[in-house]
């Protein structure tokens, strides 16, 4: 069934149709865009370096996360590029290894939120009517929750752990992904090719996957990148408060929070973990902005 496409999409090959397909079939256009958008290139490089770092963290880090290097609160230097903390742990190694925990929370959380939010958003947008109204009311409720405080309370109730962090962030992001997927679905479903698919008796799942998804993938992709940067921030914030990744596991947010205790003995203890969070957040932000410009030429003209 899926190999047969009864109606050619060319019926309505408007400029914004099939963006994802175009992106996949147009790697050259993507590369050209990347060459003209240095900010996005920087974002892509940061994100790539970050992911490679996380993957090979134990090979890169000169020390283990909790090895005592023998020097307490040693300032940054050749032996310890980021210095050492009060327990004599090498901060460079901790921040390298910490990237695993930060990305290990942010990526699964956003991935699950997209896996649930995307089909949900498409479905409510496509079906419309009372399903749509009810879903919107439920989202209104979730949007009314003060996000950070709700996350704090939820983690506090469930107990701080990596799994609960992921769960909390996922719950907060599902409605946001769904809203991003819903809006373009509302307009795409009125298009001729979707109407034709309905007329030919195409099932809901098939129509959504075959006709709606390619047309709404771009905004969802952009939103995912921006959500990743927010998820990193949320994880860091909760760990900073002692409600996220638990010591002695390395985490940028927790190291920043711990460094505060002895900060008068060396600002480097807070600067490096903080910079790691900032650079990671910036990378996903730049990448998301660049992707948006790539997919939407209208915004690009203004930028």
């Amino acid at each position: 069934m899926s190999t047969i496409t009864p109606f050619p999409e060319q019926i309505e090959a408007g400029p914004e149709t099939e963006v994802l397909v175009r992106a996949a079939t147009e790697p050259r256009r993507f590369l050209r865009h990347l060459g003209r958008d240095p900010a996005m290139l920087v974002g892509l490089v940061i994100v790539t370096v970050l992911i490679v770092t996380a993957l090979f963290a134990p090979l890169i880090a000169p020390y283990g996360a909790n090895d005592n290097s023998g020097a307490m609160l040693s300032p940054p230097g050749w032996g310890h590029p980021f210095g050492t903390n009060i327990q004599g742990r090498d901060l460079f190694s901790r921040e390298i290894l910490g990237s695993r925990n930060s990305l290990g929370v942010a990526i699964p959380a956003v991935f699950i939120a997209v896996m649930i939010g995307l089909p949900l958003g498409m479905l409510i947008g496509f079906r419309g009517g009372w399903i749509d109204s009810i879903a919107l009311r439920v989202f209104d409720i979730l949007f009314a929750l003060p996000a950070i405080l709700f996350a704090i309370a939820l983690v506090a109730y469930l107990g701080p752990s990596e799994r609960n962090l992921i769960l909390t962030i996922t719950v907060l992001y599902i409605p946001r992904v769904a809203m991003v997927a819903r809006a373009p679905t509302l307009s795409v479903r009125e298009r001729q090719f979707v109407q034709a698919a309905k007329m030919f008796g195409g099932g809901v799942v098939w129509t959504l996957r075959k006709h709606i998804l390619p047309n709404i993938a771009a905004p969802v992709l952009v939103e995912s990148s921006l959500l990743l940067s927010e998820a990193l921030l949320t994880e860091a914030a909760l760990s900073f408060l002692g409600l996220g990744i638990q010591p002695p596991n390395p985490s940028w947010g927790a190291d920043l929070g711990d460094g505060r205790q002895f900060m008068e003995l060396g600002a480097f203890q807070v600067i490096f973990p903080g910079l790691m969070i900032m650079i990671a957040v910036m990378g996903f932000n730049l990448l998301g902005d660049g992707l948006r410009d790539f997919f939407d030429p209208r915004i690009r003209k203004q930028a």
Binding site: L256, R260, V270, I277, V281, N285
Partner: peptide
Amino acid sequence: SLFGISAPNFFVGTLIVVFGAI
């Protein structure tokens, strides 16, 4: 604007406390 959006507020706040005191 890029730095303002990317810098976590608890990091900027901590820097103000640390360097303000120094």
